[in-house]
Nucleic acid binder design. Structure first.
Lengths: 204, 204
DNA sequence: TCCAGTTATTGGATCGAGTCCAATAATGGC
DNA sequence: GCCATTATTGGACTCGATCCAATAACTGGA
């Protein structure tokens, strides 16, 4: 799991450079009015190099979010396996949410300018949502004692709980200065979902 | 609310023509490999004319879905206002789902070929999901006795329940031949969500 | 019949995201 | 110095989407 970057031409650029350049430009102009070419130029690299680091321009809106979301698998794995599934998922999501304090608000949601980019943002948003829901569903399905025929229910739960959490995150970000931590927002949003599915998913 | 198409040059083409042309091409080639130009050519119109009828190529994946979703406002309005909110929403969604029988499976979900188009489909999918969630949320918020400070909860409920319904629809479509009506799928998926939020949203 | 207003259709130009490929640069190991 | 490996680059290309000006087809009225 080490670098394994001992051979070949060393990178002359970095993700961070591009992220910084993009952040500047998104402030100066809008997200929409900033082209990939602009970002690459300011970062001092070729347009193609940009696509060596990011698969899409919209990735830049999610750098912070993706960092946070990356902790979900670990949070799920660290759960007490004797607790009810819904409770485990709830705690895992809260743990992920705990990673976001008032100061750490991702690009995708803060600046209203960005929000104008509805369609492109929607695409990238759902992509992430589905990935997280998939992780949760995998976790739910792996629990011993989980009935196979309850799978549709598990999938519904996974999607619903992640969607609720995402909604909470959106409200938190929109709350502006004075929003506290993300945790409480998520708690309020996902607890009813977990409670509702508890009777169906958790062994009697 | 009548035609009001008495003046001006009459349309030489129609949405239906383009939809048919697209359906043929999606079968022959993939969705991905079919360009807007292809569709327009087969329909016998200009490429620009296509964009007079549809705002995006992806709209074609959702013609059936959009028809069905259009009935949601009416279904919500027709609800018994004395019943608990969560129950009203549940019934409204089930009524919308009832519009989809085994024979009526929309393009967006049936053919696996289409599913390959993840990103473009995701964009259009979330757009629709958010619209429906917005409608539900509006409905929930308009209920008398709905506490204003419960608004975040209402929003979480709206998003979660719509997401669960969408998941159910996806499973239903993926079930292949022999899938029955959409109703039962949706019922199983959204009932726990409604139950979970009932204690929080419905007046004690 | 001619004209004005209205709407539909069209061609052409333009932009920008994303992909592909072949050439080249910079490293480490031999 | 040669080789395998990896990063970077330029260029060409496709395609979705937008914009604009021109034109076609209809209406009603003078």
């Amino acid at each position: 799991m080490s670098d394994s970057r001992a051979v070949g031409r060393p990178r002359g650029s970095s993700r961070a450079m591009l992220e910084e350049a993009a952040a500047e430009l998104f402030l100066e102009q809008t997200y929409a009015k900033t082209t990939v070419g602009d970002i690459a130029r300011r970062a001092g690299v070729s347009r193609n190099t940009f696509f060596n680091y990011f698969t899409a321009k919209s990735d830049l809106l999610w750098v912070d979010v993706d960092d946070g979301l990356a902790t979900l698998p670990a949070a799920l794995a660290a759960c007490d396996r004797s607790a009810p599934v819904t409770e485990s998922v709830r705690q895992a999501l809260l743990r992920v949410a705990a990673g976001f304090g008032p100061g750490r608000v991702p690009w995708s949601v803060t600046h209203d300018q960005v929000m104008a980019t509805t369609s492109e943002l929607a695409a990238s948003a759902l992509a992430r949502l589905l990935v997280q829901a998939g992780l949760v569903h995998e976790f739910v399905g792996a629990r011993p004692g989980h009935a196979v025929d309850a799978d549709p229910v598990g999938r519904a739960f996974s999607t619903a709980v992640v969607a609720a959490a995402a909604t909470a995150a959106a409200e938190w970000a929109a709350a502006g200065v004075g929003r506290g931590d993300l945790g409480p927002y998520v708690d309020v949003a996902i607890s009813p979902v977990c409670a509702g599915f508890a009777t169906v998913l958790d062994p009697a």
